[in-house]
Structure formats: C-alpha cells, structure tokens
Design a protein around this nucleic acid. Structure first.
Lengths: 158, 158
DNA sequence: TATTGTTATACTCTATAACTATA
DNA sequence: TATAGTTATAGAGTATAACAATA
C-alpha cells in the first residue's frame, strides 16, 4: 500500500523552510543548469570540466597547466587527469616549452577544434534555451545581482 | 624565478569564454554561497545537509526518512548516515510508528531545538549579509529570474 | 508482492603530501 | 631553494543492488 496518509505532510510545502533563503534558489538553479549542461555535452563525450578546459586552451593557445588550473580553480593534481583525458582523445597536445623545460604549453589539435566547435554550438543553444522568455536586460540584471552577492561574500577570508 | 612573462596570458580575461554563459555566473555564485554557508555552520558542528535535515524535521515533526529523502532529493541509503549523525549527537530521535512498524518518525530533541535555533539565526544573518545593498524587490527579481530558468529546463526529461 | 530502513559497494569530485625534473 | 607537473591517497558526495522486517 502506497498510501501517503497516516502522516499529514504535504511535500510541496515541506521545504518552505529552506525556500526562505536566496541561496536555496541559486543552488537549485545551478544544479538544474549543470545537470542539463552535462546532458548537452554527453553526445560529444565531454564533461563540463573537460569542455571548459578545451575551451580555455583553444581561446588561450599555449596555456600552461598551472595557469589552466588557476583559471579553472581546480588543484593541479586534479587537472593532470583532466588534461590526460583530452590528450588521450587527441583533442589537445602537451608541447614542451623551450624556455622552461618543466612546463607544458597546451594546444588543441585540428580534431580538438572540430569537436569544440560542435560542442560550443550546443552549449550556446543551451544558453539561449535556458534564457527563453527573458530580455537581454533581464539577463544582465541576473548576472549583476549575482555579482553583488559574490562581492558581499568576498571579505570573510581570515 | 617566478616571472609570469614568457607566456603573455592575462588571467583576468582568460575565462572570458565561459563568462559568456549565464550558467557560469550562477554556478560561481552558488559555490560562493555554499562555501560561505559551510563556514557559517561549522561552529555548530553542522554541515549544510545536516542543517537542512534538522530544519525540515523541526518544521515537520514526525517526518519519515523516506519523506525526508524525497524532499532533500538524496537517495535513501545516503540519508541513513545523515540521520545517524544527527541521532548520535542527540539532536533528533527515531520514533517507531505504531501504525507502520517499518517506518521511523523523526523528531528533534530539546537539544536539537536549541542547536537549530542558534544555527538558524546564523543562517538568517548570512542571508541578510549576502543580500546587502539589494532591495526586497531586487531579491524577488533574482528569485523570479532563477525560477524562469529552471522552468525552461524542466521539459527535457525523455 | 511491495515498501521502509539498512548494508555494502562503487564511482565521481576534491584536497593534500610527497616525488621528479628542471629552474 | 623554488616551481611545474606528477603520483598516490584520502575524504566527501552520490548512486545502485540486495537484504531483513513489515505491510
């Protein structure tokens, strides 16, 4: 018996507690966008992180791993496996830097450019889709309000 | 030598690629809020998930684990350890339900109410802090715009 | 037969320490 | 001595299968 009675709890209103906080709405929206984006990238055999890395390498040819890690805000050890994945699929190459033989310059292969172009189109389409019904001004308002929140949270480092 | 030259890459503008997408801003904001919230809850020895569970149990006394899992959108096996943590700290109890001896009714202890009251105040303060400089109308606008995005992403289930 | 809570398990993400080769 | 990349590892968070008790 899947009778929901016995305990008179209405699930639609159960989380009214958490709904009072702005962060709850932001988190839910972030999760929704991220899981949808993962779905969009799946046909290209890319995850969000590998897509991001590929995008940053293509837009910044010769980028080094440490720089990529810094921009993506991931630890260097975790970036290694991420770059490995892109290299093993021949989407990027690690070029030795002549002036500093410790470092690698990351560059996309022709195949990498091809895959990225197609994936990028899909991501742009997703961006348009999730903004459906919103004006350019509303889009900018959303980004601005989000930036205000982030700046309000910046100080408390120590 | 920590000379940043050799590769002329400006990190402030390196991620301009990803900044074009609204999801990037939402995700960064969500991460900022969540990590700050974790910091706010640390003094109470609560994590975000345990705080959420405690809040939902207090606002819905007698809630069952399966219902709590549904509302929190976590799998039942993962909720068990979460409820374990709250029970071991004597913040909640698992009461057997007379009408269905398979289920547990979750209730907060006096200690649970005390801890929650203090943690809740801190979370409310954080909510106010992150909204600093925004009007009530701007707060509502942000929530509404986020809701539009989520509704735009709902259909693609099949 | 189905459901509640549970155990065991596995897979991803993330974070830290320590190594190597170069500087 | 310090840095770039790497390895190994450990800790969260999350997901599925299968079990015991109960419906």
């Amino acid at each position: 018996m899947s009778e929901p009675a016995a305990q008179a709890i209405h699930l639609e209103t159960t989380d009214a507690v958490l709904q009072r906080f702005v962060g709850y709405h932001i988190k839910r929206t972030s999760n929704a966008i991220l899981s949808d984006l993962a779905r969009v990238l799946k046909p290209f055999d890319l995850r969000i992180t590998t897509y991001s890395a590929l995008a940053l390498i293509i837009e910044n040819p010769g980028l080094r791993q440490s720089q990529l890690a810094q921009v993506m805000d991931v630890e260097r050890p975790n970036l290694v496996v991420l770059v490995d994945a892109l290299e093993q699929r021949d989407l990027i190459v690690r070029d030795r830097v002549a002036s500093d033989r410790r470092a690698y310059a990351l560059r996309a292969t022709p195949e990498g450019h091809t895959v990225y172009a197609a994936a990028h189109d899909a991501v742009v389409a997703q961006d348009r889709r999730l903004l459906h019904g919103l004006t350019d001004e509303q889009r900018q308002t959303l980004i601005d309000l989000a930036a205000v929140i982030r700046s309000n949270l910046e100080p408390p480092k120590p």
